[in-house]
Structure formats: structure tokens, C-alpha cells
């Protein structure tokens, strides 16, 4: 899956790159010297205890949260600070949330076409055709004319993924996409994500689904108290965690 494109100098330009990122919420130091590169087509899974800063990290990448220091680059270009440029950048980095966040006043189809028509100025008809293709791809095309509240959580989350895909993003950030789902619906969302990964989508995924991480991730990042403590291949990380904190964390989730 890993396939970084070299730039003119022959070096690889990561899709997402964080350099020495720092963030505070008041006195709380939530991100401490975060350095991270996600290459084209790479799937990086972030795990770590509650409050370790995983969501905050995700949200800084499309600037839903500002940072205090450091740099964030998308395909080598620093994040714009505000305004139209920032909105355009956000359109290039998809985000899938724990709570789906579909627009509850619009149909499923509208949820998927709104971004393309209003942000990318794709003609309506074209946007609808592509939306139907995407809905079919995630298996909810028969629900296209319903509103979100009429769908199950698993279906809503798959629509949310289709809504992201409709923007043709360079990468998609997933923040605990299955944590709000009933157990029987987790599989259907993970399998859509697995397919995406197989097709070469660049993905940064915060999740507690260790089997997914094992099967799909190219790299696992373990965060604790605002720092990246460990970074390794899934096999190496799960069988031989280096740090005591990672060992404790893996023990704690395996006892559940």
C-alpha cells in the first residue's frame, strides 16, 4: 500500500506532515513536540488512552483546532491560517467523526452532494450521479432519499464516509469511527475502511479496534499524555511493545 511519490529532488513528499507541533488548552499541554509523516497510500493508526490527545491531533490536521507552535504541511504546503484558503484545504482532507454528524435536515443523497456542488462547484447532475455511485460503494444506495435519523448508526457512518469521498480528498482522518456503534454494526464500517485502504487511500485512523490496526495499518502510533511514545509496524508494536506505557495500555484493553 505504501507508495510515496518522489518530488523533483527525489525525496518523498508526505501527504500529511507534522513538525514539532505543540498545543495547550490553558495550562493543559495536550500536544507535545508531535512529529509525524503520513505518506501517500499509507494507513496510520493512532492508539492511546483516553485524554492522550488523539482527537486533538486529528483536529489540528485540518485546523479545526489551532496549534501554538510547529508546522503542519499537506503535500508539502503549510496549512493556511484562515479564510477561503483554509476552507479549500479542509475540502482536501476528509474527516469522519465518532458521531457521524450527517446534516439532519437533508436527505442522504444531499448530504453527499452538498460539498461537491457548493464547495467544488460540480454541476448538480454530475454530483448526484457520483453520490449514487459512492452510496452504492458503501452499500446504502437504497437509503438515498431518506433522512439521517431513519438510518442505523452503521449506515450513517458509511454515508459519512461517502460524504468525505465525494470531495476526492488527499487523505481522510477518522476519529474513533466505530466507537458510537452497536457491536453488530462495527464490522460493516471497518470493512468499508479496509476496502478504502486497499484502494490506496491515505488514512489516519484513531481507533480502539486492534484487529483492524493489525490487519490494515502500515504503522501504529501510540500516544500518551500528549506525546508520541512509540511508532512501529503493527506486528512489532503488538507483539513487542517497547515502552512500559504501551505494555500497560495493551494489557488494559486486552483484559476487557
Amino acid at each position: 500500500m505504501r507508495n510515496m511519490e518522489p518530488d523533483q529532488n527525489g525525496a518523498e513528499v508526505p501527504v500529511i506532515e507534522l513538525r514539532h507541533v505543540e498545543k495547550h488548552y490553558g495550562d493543559l499541554h495536550v500536544l507535545k513536540d508531535i512529529n509525524l509523516r503520513v505518506g501517500k497510500g499509507e494507513v496510520v493508526v493512532i492508539i492511546g488512552p483516553s485524554g492522550s490527545g488523539k482527537s486533538t491531533l486529528c483536529r489540528t490536521i485540518n485546523r479545526m483546532e489551532t496549534i501554538d507552535a510547529g508546522e503542519i504541511l499537506i503535500e508539502g504546503v503549510p496549512l493556511p491560517v484562515e479564510g477561503r484558503e483554509l476552507a479549500q484545504l479542509r475540502a482536501q482532507v476528509g474527516m469522519v467523526f465518532q458521531s457521524f454528524n450527517l446534516f439532519s435536515h437533508r436527505t442522504i443523497l444531499d448530504n453527499v452532494t452538498l460539498g461537491p456542488t457548493d464547495v467544488l462547484h460540480v454541476p448538480k447532475k454530475e454530483a448526484r450521479e457520483e453520490a449514487m455511485r459512492l452510496l452504492a460503494r458503501v452499500g446504502v444506495e437504497s437509503q438515498a432519499h431518506k433522512v439521517p435519523a431513519q438510518l442505523s448508526g452503521g449506515q450513517q457512518q458509511r454515508v459519512a464516509i461517502a460524504r468525505s469521498l465525494a470531495m476526492h480528498p488527499k487523505a481522510i482522518l477518522f476519529d474513533e469511527p466505530t466507537s458510537a456503534l452497536d457491536p453488530e454494526m462495527i464490522g460493516e464500517v471497518l470493512s468499508v475502511m479496509t476496502e478504502l485502504a486497499g484502494e490506496g487511500m491515505t488514512m489516519l485512523v484513531v481507533t480502539h479496534e486492534m484487529n483492524f490496526a493489525r490487519r490494515v495499518a502500515d504503522r501504529v502510533i501510540f500516544m500518551d499524555a500528549g506525546s508520541i511514545v512509540e511508532e512501529n509496524t503493527p506486528d512489532a508494536f503488538f507483539s513487542h511493545p517497547k515502552s512500559q506505557r504501551a505494555k500497560d495500555f495493551l494489557d488494559s484493553i486486552q483484559n476487557h
Partner: peptide, 12 residues
């Protein structure tokens, strides 16, 4: 979350 979702697909 819906407002964040709107911002995250690039809406101004």
C-alpha cells in the same frame, strides 16, 4: 458536530 462536519468539507 454538524457544524464541524460542514467546515470539514470546506464550507466557508
Amino acid at each position: 458536530g454538524q457544524i464541524e462536519a460542514a467546515r470539514s468539507i470546506g464550507m466557508t
